[in-house]
Each structure stands twice: as C-alpha cells, then as structure tokens.
Computed example of a mutant assay.
Amino acid sequence: MSEYLETPGGRRIAFQRSNGRGPGVVFLGGFKSDMTGTKAAWLHDWARERNRAFLRFDYSGHGDSSGCFEEGSIGDWLGDARDVIHALTDGPQVLVGSSMGGWIALLLARAMPQRVAGLVTIAAAPDFTQQGFWAGFNDAQRDTLMRAGRVELPSDYSDQPYVITRRLIEDGRDHLVMNQPLRLPFPVRMLQGTADEDVPADWAVRLLDHATGDDIRLTLVKGADHRFSTPECLQLIAASIDDVLA
C-alpha cells in the first residue's frame, strides 16, 4: 500500500518502504515507469526477506504521484529523489538506478556523496535527453520541438506516444554528467544487456571509461534487453547489491 510524502516544493510523492537494517536500498525507476514495475517489486520482496531497509517511489508525473508527466524534467525528478532520500531514509544508501534512474543516481552521487553507500545501475542512461533524443532528432523534429515546445515519438512500451518537450531537453543540458569529471568514491556495479535497443551497450562502456573510482565494474549480459527482468537478470541485480554491501 502506497504512502505519500509532501515535499518542500509542494509535490505529493507516492512511495512504499519497508524497515530493516542499513545501509538501505533505494530503487530509482526509469523514464515514464513507476514503482510497480517488475524490478522494483521483486527487489522489495528480496529486501524484506533479508531484513534490509528498502524504498521505492514514483517521481512526480509518474505512477501515483502528483503532477503531469509532460511538464516534468530531469531536475524535477532529481529533486523528488533527493527529497524522499532526505525525508525517508537514514544514513548512506545503496542506490539502484534503472535507465533514467541510473542518470538520477549519478546526479545524486555527485550532489550528496555522503548519503551514498554504493551504486548499482541497470542500463544506465546518463544524458539521454541529449545523446539519445536530441542527437536522434532530424531537422524537422528539432524545428518542431523548438517552435511548438514538444514533439511526439512512438513508444515500444505503450500505445501512447512519448511526448518530448523543449523544457525536458533544455533542463537535461543543465544536468549532464558525461561532460565533466564524475568521481564515484564507493563501490559501483553497472549492469547492461547487449540486446538493449533503448540504451546501447557502448553507453555503458563510455560511462565506465568516464567515471573515476577505486571499485567500479561493468557486467555485460549477452542477449539481455532493456527490461533486464528475467529471473537470471533479477538475481544478478541482487548479487550486485550484495557485492556493494559487502
């Protein structure tokens, strides 16, 4: 059953958590996904079985939280994540970031490293608004975006198109992580499927090359897609969290 946090910015953020020992685990979902997804729900059960504190939540405009998705931006969702971690967790946390959540996790690690015990990313998509959407737009789409403030893209996961806004693109440029030093002074485990059609495997390799830290590892899983939700993939996520906690 979801609970709700009223943030200082006036957003109503839906969350589910279970108490347990620390460091706790915080799941950060992807673009237009919510906390009822396979990975988030499975990891919550996994944490409960081990008496490990766990938190999952919906960014504003996602799932049961307040707000309109199309009005949101990376900065907004980063703010939501920062607010729930400050309000609902104690001490350093292991951040588990899926797709866009991987970008959010990296931004949190940069902004509040003292609250991060470790990082597990799953098909991390840092800077995807720029190196994914903007770089992939043709001239007509870029013109439409700048003139109309939005462009619609087909979605592989829904009948509804993705609406990409000018605000999302421009705000994303204010939160890039691949264009400046990225120090990760804690254990980091990056997971990436080779059959991922949304986040290319070479993004994971570039992130590995770009980040600096004493304990950073990348695991490529042959044939795994962007969902990364097969039983084998879920077990690998859990093993990676255990590795970070150890």
Rank of each mutant, 00 (worst) to 15 (best):
residue 122 I to F: 09
residue 48 R to V: 02
residue 237 I to G: 07
residue 195 A to S: 12
residue 122 I to Y: 07
residue 11 R to K: 11
residue 7 T to W: 04
residue 136 G to S: 09
residue 173 R to V: 00
residue 137 F to M: 14
residue 239 A to Y: 14
residue 38 T to E: 14
residue 108 L to Y: 07
residue 130 Q to V: 15
residue 146 M to Q: 12
residue 159 D to R: 15
residue 166 R to N: 09
residue 6 E to Q: 02
residue 102 G to H: 14
residue 23 P to H: 10
residue 142 R to K: 15
residue 73 S to N: 10
residue 160 Q to N: 15
residue 179 N to R: 08
residue 206 R to G: 13
residue 218 L to G: 08
residue 97 G to N: 02
residue 110 R to W: 03
residue 160 Q to A: 14
residue 163 V to N: 01
residue 58 D to W: 03
residue 28 L to I: 15
residue 188 V to L: 12
residue 43 L to W: 01
residue 11 R to V: 11
residue 140 A to V: 07
residue 84 V to M: 12
residue 9 G to F: 09
residue 191 L to W: 11
residue 177 V to L: 09
residue 142 R to N: 14
residue 44 H to G: 02
residue 149 G to C: 11
residue 63 G to P: 11
residue 20 G to Y: 05
residue 131 Q to H: 05
residue 133 F to R: 01
residue 157 Y to V: 06
residue 68 C to H: 14
residue 85 I to Q: 07
residue 206 R to V: 04
residue 66 S to F: 08
residue 23 P to K: 08
residue 88 L to K: 05
residue 6 E to N: 06
residue 16 Q to A: 12
residue 197 E to R: 06
residue 56 R to G: 11
residue 74 I to F: 06
residue 130 Q to R: 11
residue 97 G to I: 05
residue 135 A to F: 09
residue 204 A to M: 00
residue 10 G to D: 01
residue 236 L to I: 11
residue 194 T to M: 06
residue 191 L to S: 03
residue 106 L to G: 03
residue 83 D to P: 09
residue 192 Q to N: 01
residue 48 R to F: 03
residue 53 A to T: 13
residue 69 F to L: 15
residue 177 V to A: 04
residue 203 W to V: 00
residue 75 G to H: 15
residue 161 P to H: 13
residue 172 G to T: 13
residue 42 W to F: 09
residue 210 H to I: 07
residue 91 G to Q: 09
residue 6 E to G: 00
residue 37 G to W: 03
residue 11 R to Y: 10
residue 220 L to G: 03
residue 232 E to L: 13
residue 93 Q to V: 14
residue 65 S to C: 04
residue 43 L to A: 00
residue 107 L to H: 13
residue 104 I to E: 03
residue 227 R to Q: 06
residue 132 G to P: 14
residue 131 Q to G: 00
residue 50 R to A: 15
residue 44 H to K: 05
residue 64 D to S: 05
residue 229 S to Y: 04
residue 76 D to M: 11
residue 116 V to H: 10
residue 218 L to V: 11
residue 127 D to R: 01
residue 44 H to Y: 08
residue 170 E to H: 04
residue 168 L to S: 06
residue 62 H to K: 04
residue 2 S to D: 08
residue 1 M to R: 14
residue 179 N to Y: 00
residue 102 G to L: 09
residue 89 T to A: 09
residue 187 P to I: 13
residue 122 I to Q: 13
residue 141 Q to S: 02
residue 227 R to Y: 06
residue 30 G to M: 10
residue 116 V to Y: 07
residue 150 R to E: 13
residue 231 P to F: 05
residue 149 G to R: 12
residue 179 N to F: 00
residue 2 S to I: 02
residue 131 Q to W: 03
residue 104 I to H: 02
residue 152 E to G: 10
residue 137 F to A: 08
residue 133 F to Q: 03
residue 119 L to A: 03
residue 186 F to E: 03
residue 197 E to Q: 09
residue 102 G to I: 12
residue 52 R to S: 06
residue 109 A to L: 06
residue 42 W to R: 08
residue 223 G to A: 14
residue 67 G to S: 15
residue 72 G to S: 14
residue 15 F to N: 06
residue 13 I to H: 10
residue 98 S to Q: 08
residue 168 L to H: 00
residue 104 I to K: 11
residue 31 F to K: 07
residue 131 Q to S: 09
residue 7 T to A: 11
residue 37 G to F: 01
residue 118 G to C: 03
residue 193 G to D: 04
residue 68 C to L: 15
